[in-house]
Write a protein that binds this DNA or RNA. Sequence first.
DNA 1: CGAACACTTGACAGCCCTCAACGTGAGTGG
DNA 2: CCACTCACGTTGAGGGCTGTCAAGTGTTCG
Lengths: 276, 276
Amino acid sequence: MPTSTRRTTWCAHGSRARSEPTRETLLNPTAFPRQDARTLSDDGDELHFCSTCAFSDACLSQGMDKSALMELHVLVEHVGPIRAGEHVFREGDDFDAIAAVRAGTVKTYVVDRDGREHVLGFHLPGEVIGLNAIDTDHYPCNAVALDTVMLCRFSFPQMELLATRVPGLQRQLFRLMSRDIGRASQLAGDFTADQRLAAFLIGFSRRLAARGFSPHRFQLTMARTDIANYLRLAPETVSRVLKRFQVEGWVTVERRELQLLVPDALEALAAPVLRA
Amino acid sequence: MPTSTRRTTWCAHGSRARSEPTRETLLNPTAFPRQDARTLSDDGDELHFCSTCAFSDACLSQGMDKSALMELHVLVEHVGPIRAGEHVFREGDDFDAIAAVRAGTVKTYVVDRDGREHVLGFHLPGEVIGLNAIDTDHYPCNAVALDTVMLCRFSFPQMELLATRVPGLQRQLFRLMSRDIGRASQLAGDFTADQRLAAFLIGFSRRLAARGFSPHRFQLTMARTDIANYLRLAPETVSRVLKRFQVEGWVTVERRELQLLVPDALEALAAPVLRA
DNA sequence: CGAACACTTGACAGCCCTCAACGTGAGTGG
DNA sequence: CCACTCACGTTGAGGGCTGTCAAGTGTTCG
């Protein structure tokens, strides 16, 4: 019943923000101690937010003043941990918030009426989910945690309001959405299985690198089936192509542990997809 | 040279705005006379803009006050006519404006390094182009007129600025971009040629209907090759499937003139694609 | 230890792309 | 009015990529 109105399952089974701000705290942002920790796993409880956060660019580089920064900070609601298999939201839920992934991987997907699952995307730390729900006021897809996930939740009505006062935030939202448009269309092309998988691996590697993780050795947090449903291939094809890459000596694959030995070869394959 | 910085070709061969506002006019929005004409081919020289415009919803329904409406109106620069085959912008051009199609059809596409053309979308009257350029500050694709095109051009920096003062406009921009994300991902699925073409025809029909045109009988403004490159099919396949639809008695096709006889049959086929 | 699940590997078939040739309509110039 | 050109579209034959089906292996978890 996709048309029914129903409450979001946000944080349905996860614990709430580890230190839920009291109303007094909300009105007194200075209560948050300033820290300079910039580790990948920081919990965001400082003015500069999580260093991995998609909004940190907006905050730090766009000349956002301190008061605006604090206002954004007050909006944040820490959600999690959400365990693997638990849903962040489901298709048809009322849209009321977007979220930045703080840790873990979120998969967004839809199920068509034939029961086939279509994976829309995998969202890594620092990336934002929920932007495609703005148009219809309902989430048009499901979002599920692939491993243990921590989120920064932002009420969208409040975010919208703040964006009118903070041009840097508005601009960052525009950029994020614009980026999603491009990313969504890049896999729409008719590419071979090899090209698709190479593009997936290179894209994954680049996104990890952008957040400070190793681009050469990383873990695939999703099942082969998920990759297949994302790339519009059969799971068997994913398996076969990965094998072929391994035989070529371009990668090593051990369960979900992946190592890129010859990134250039994959880049060459992926070129038409990534820079189509 | 996709990395080179180069001026946009906006209105490269078309005539400029028919009544370019003077600086005084810009500062005196009341100089624009109010009109109530709401025809599909109105030229937008009134407060309510073209009735087909994607922003008219934002203006009229979101409670935008009169002064804000006038400010938006002042931003509009009428561009055209642009003749078939002329480009609105090209990949790599500096991004400085978005545009609403006022009349005609615009095709956006990219050419990969193998020389193959990938059509990203067809943009009908009332729809907006250029939103996917915000992220990189350069247009990531080409935009070409398929027939005689008229545009409403909006300087994006000015639009952004105005959006901070007019929440309704900001919201409309968010909605438009959110919609594009969804639309871009819906053809990413692995569907049969029949499903893709049915979805294309139904989608085209619906979009025309939304702007007041006949949903049952319309003209395909693009070549079979364009449709094929959009749906990731071979032109021959498009031809064959269209033929099959015609044999089934679902449509009549005469060159680019198309008539939907049994929309339900096509809807059924397209269902997995449109509401995947 | 057994069951469920994820993943791999193999055989086969089907959809659609490729290649090729032909038909058609619009525009041009004689 | 007609011949010509050219782009666009159609139709046919053949082959390749990848999906489907099936069986087997390895891993996790109860």
